[in-house]
Simulated assay, not measured.
Amino acid sequence: MTRPAPVPFLDLGAVNAPLRDALDVAWKTVLGHGRFVGGPEVAAFEDDFAAYCGTDHCVGVANGTDALELVLDGLGIGPGDEVVLPANTFVATAEAVRAVGARPRFVDVRPDTLLVDPDAVAAAIGPRTAAVVAVHLFGQMADVDGLLAVTDRHGVPLVEDAAQAHGARYAGRRAGGAGRAAAFSFYPGKNLGAFGDGGAVVSDDAELVARIRRTADHGRSATSRHHHDVSGRNSRLDTLQAAVLGIKLGGLDAANARRVEAVERYREQLPDWCAPVAQDPLAESVHHLAVVRVPDRAAAVAALDAGGIGWGVHYPVPCHLQPAFAEFADDPCPVAERAAGEILSLPLFPGIAPAQVDRVCSVLAGV
Results as ranks from 00 to 15, higher is better:
R174Y: 14
R174V: 07
G176C: 07
G176M: 02
G177V: 11
A178N: 06
A178L: 00
A181L: 10
F186G: 08
Y187S: 13
P188W: 03
G189I: 12
K190H: 10
N191P: 04
L192M: 01
F195Y: 02
D197Y: 09
A200G: 02
A200Y: 04
V201Q: 01
E207V: 14
L208W: 09
A210I: 10
R211Q: 03
R211T: 11
I212C: 04
I212V: 15
R214D: 09
R214G: 03
T215M: 01
D217E: 09
S221P: 06
T223M: 13
S224P: 00
H227K: 08
H227V: 12
H228A: 02
V230R: 08
S231L: 14
R233S: 13
S235V: 08
R236M: 10
D238T: 04
T239N: 01
L240I: 12
A243Y: 01
V244G: 02
G246M: 07
K248A: 10
K248G: 02
G251V: 05
L252T: 08
D253N: 11
D253W: 03
A255K: 04
A255G: 03
N256Q: 08
A257S: 13
R258N: 15
R258W: 06
V263M: 12
E264D: 15
E264Q: 12
R265H: 14
R265T: 12
L270H: 00
V277E: 00
P281E: 05
L282C: 13
A283W: 01
E284H: 06
S285E: 07
V286I: 13
V286K: 01
H288C: 11
H288R: 06
L289C: 09
V291H: 00
V291N: 03
V292I: 08
V292R: 05
R293T: 10
P295C: 12
D296F: 04
D296Y: 01
R297F: 02
R297Y: 11
A300R: 00
A300S: 08
V301G: 00
A302H: 05
A302N: 05
A302W: 00
